[in-house]
Design a protein around this nucleic acid. Sequence first.
DNA 1: ACCGTTGATACCTTGCGGATATGAATGATC
DNA 2: GATCATTCATATCCGCAAGGTATCAACGGT
Lengths: 317, 317
Amino acid sequence: MNDLEVRQLRYFVAVAEELHFGRAAARLGMAQPPLSRSIRELERRLGVTLFERTTRQVTLTAAGEVLLRDARDVLAAIAAAARRARHAGRPAPRLRLALKADHDGGLLPRILAAYRREEAAPPVELLLGGRGEQDQALRDGRADVALLAVPCDERGLDVEPLLTEPRLVALSAADPLAARSSLRLADLAGRTRPDGSPADRDDLGPPVGSGERPPKTDREPAVVTHRAASDLTQIFKLIELGDTVAFLPACVTRRYPRPGIVYRPADDLLPVTLAVAWPQNSHSPAVAAFVRAATAVAASDEQDTTMPPEAVTRSSG
Amino acid sequence: MNDLEVRQLRYFVAVAEELHFGRAAARLGMAQPPLSRSIRELERRLGVTLFERTTRQVTLTAAGEVLLRDARDVLAAIAAAARRARHAGRPAPRLRLALKADHDGGLLPRILAAYRREEAAPPVELLLGGRGEQDQALRDGRADVALLAVPCDERGLDVEPLLTEPRLVALSAADPLAARSSLRLADLAGRTRPDGSPADRDDLGPPVGSGERPPKTDREPAVVTHRAASDLTQIFKLIELGDTVAFLPACVTRRYPRPGIVYRPADDLLPVTLAVAWPQNSHSPAVAAFVRAATAVAASDEQDTTMPPEAVTRSSG
DNA sequence: ACCGTTGATACCTTGCGGATATGAATGATC
DNA sequence: GATCATTCATATCCGCAAGGTATCAACGGT
């Protein structure tokens, strides 16, 4: 049939991103003429011109922009399909759970216990990652299910909220602001967050573009991390040095009382909602079992919300 | 690279659906040996066996089942991408709005008026269809935006609820039940709905499989429609004949008072929510304009909810 | 006016996808 | 239990389309 081919989409995305046939061809590891011809063939099949080209510059048409979005999605979906199939073909496929270390609202042990009591419960493989990596891992087939903070990019995912809890500002005990009992985000001007972004605004929310870099502050902070710190111990180290602050869910702050660090509420710091998420077309019984377990634990936890969290018995250290 | 090809996925889906290489090859319009070889090549690339085959029967492995879901999605996404690109390449691309005739909650005229006042508002092209066709039209690239009833299959879509309104049972004035002022679904046992499904249960909800047939009743009704009636006039004809009942949103019943038909509330008939929906990766300004218009109209309408709907001035007939 | 850049064209080569012929294995039949 | 039919796999050939090289043509900057 007159079907689009994956190769054509790959080529198209390369040219659309480079806006230069020569560079795109180099990126694809091929010569320029066959690339030009392949794009022409794609345009012929679609009956649509995708690029306006002169010998000096190449621009996307409106149709090209539309196709670019879809083509990226399709290519990602194909790669994800391959990954998922490969995983499912392993002799004993595990349930790959993506989460950010310690950001599980303290529910993880109970969720895992409830999960293991389910019928179809293959062993769980943890996939630890930084903020915003969980949804990506679900989409590209590296994970089967995730515990993540919403809002996030929910495209292609099913998301079930579990619990909402406030976040606190973690700052050095030596910080002047530590003397105050409550803060506002504006008070944090000049300080940075562990990922390098400025701390006086809360950029929580779905990441818009895929190739997004963390915005840089104009004035250089005293401490610059080469890579964004994702490990909590690294983060605490940075905070103790001053100049860096972090917004941490209450469950994390309760678990990590540290001498050099204080936690303060901030009025305009939005609470974070923990959710369980999975790919929309997943019909895996293991995923279903995990989701059941997670929602059951969260529901039983909600009834305890009336008593203060200190009153809850800690089962283990 | 070791990338999957669309052709391989098409072949795989055909074999997975037929579970027979010969028939699958016939369906694909090709000979059986190259099909077998192509599947083997796919398995080699994935490093996974997708089918257990003996000379007498072919079965899907677990990995095959996983890939089948993803492959169907990918193929649909590619076809949709092609359709969308073709449409976007037309000289004056229109905004294609999918909806079910008359099931617009009476909002459509005002939504269209508000939409036309927006900045980027290309002409609207209506795409009328039966229940459950709207989400499909969005997914496969035939429509850019839709007004539809939730719950529906929201996979790949963004959905914004507009208004919720009760549904009423439409039945023949000659029906014994017409004497009662209120019904329950159980009272409707034995009657059928216009699509042929039994009327004593409400199968509202997301359709599970793609190739689902409407369930047949065991006892044959007096009137059998060859195709499911989707046109309201056809539906009314059937209802007048008795034996058929329909669940219609209040906005429809208000617009169509008919002598031979009465509308009765049913206690356990869930209300229907009208929503505006669009493909998740759509960044079209026209779609954004339409969604803004629809939500604005719905919001302004919500304030009038306190007064009974009869009190609302009817602008046109 | 000249030169460099860049996409298009022409032509050749090759690898892969498809067809035909045939083999091998398995279940059914008498 | 020998035979046959069914069905997937293998062997081999062929044609086309994807990729490479050489070259042209158009446009911009100096």
